[in-house]
């Protein structure tokens, strides 16, 4: 309840300055102050992964940090990742594979998958399952999500390989 504090940060490519309560989480800030409701609050204790956002290039639980701690940070939410088309292939394959049902975990899943494929281009199914273990999904049983991420990894590797092959000798 103490006084609001000013913070400046980058969200989805836009520089913003806002005044926030010190106790306000980043998740609440994104959802309530910025209207970015694609970031979901499922457990508010860092267990379920529905609130994952990219913070300075890494997936972070937006429910576990305060908005004031994000001052100066660069944040991408599912909305920003959608607009920049950074996860367009993941979204497309999630759609065709039906790797979502109610969709509440989905933004967090996409961010987790984006983070995984950024650090490991060709994960095995076990590695995908392991990487998703901080993301609860109650609807799908996970298999379709694992399939979708595996498919995207293969496609990206295939595209990378073919673009290398097309390089002039």
């Amino acid at each position: 309840m103490s006084a609001h504090l000013p913070i400046t940060l980058s969200v989805n490519g836009e520089e913003l300055t806002r005044r926030v309560e010190p106790r306000e989480t980043l998740a609440d800030f994104l959802r309530r102050d910025l209207g970015l409701t694609g970031t979901h609050a499922g457990c508010e204790m860092g267990a379920c992964g529905a609130c994952l956002v990219m913070l300075d290039g890494l997936p972070v639980h937006a429910c576990l940090i305060f908005a004031v701690q994000a001052a100066g940070a660069t944040i991408q939410t599912v909305e920003g990742l959608t607009e920049s088309a950074a996860i367009a292939d993941l979204q497309s394959v999630f759609h065709t594979r039906n790797a979502l049902q109610c969709g509440f975990c989905t933004p967090g899943m996409l961010v987790a998958a984006h983070g995984l494929l950024s650090r490991c281009a060709m994960p095995s199914r076990e590695e995908i399952r392991d990487a998703l273990s901080g993301n609860y999904c109650r609807c799908t049983g996970y298999e379709a999500i694992v399939d979708a991420i595996e498919t995207v990894a293969r496609r990206r590797a295939g595209e990378a390989a073919s673009s290398m092959a097309e390089e002039p000798a």
Partner: peptide, 10 residues
């Protein structure tokens, strides 16, 4: 499902 994937669920 498209809007849910884009974070545009309501």
């Amino acid at each position: 499902a498209a809007r849910l994937l884009a974070g545009r669920g309501r």
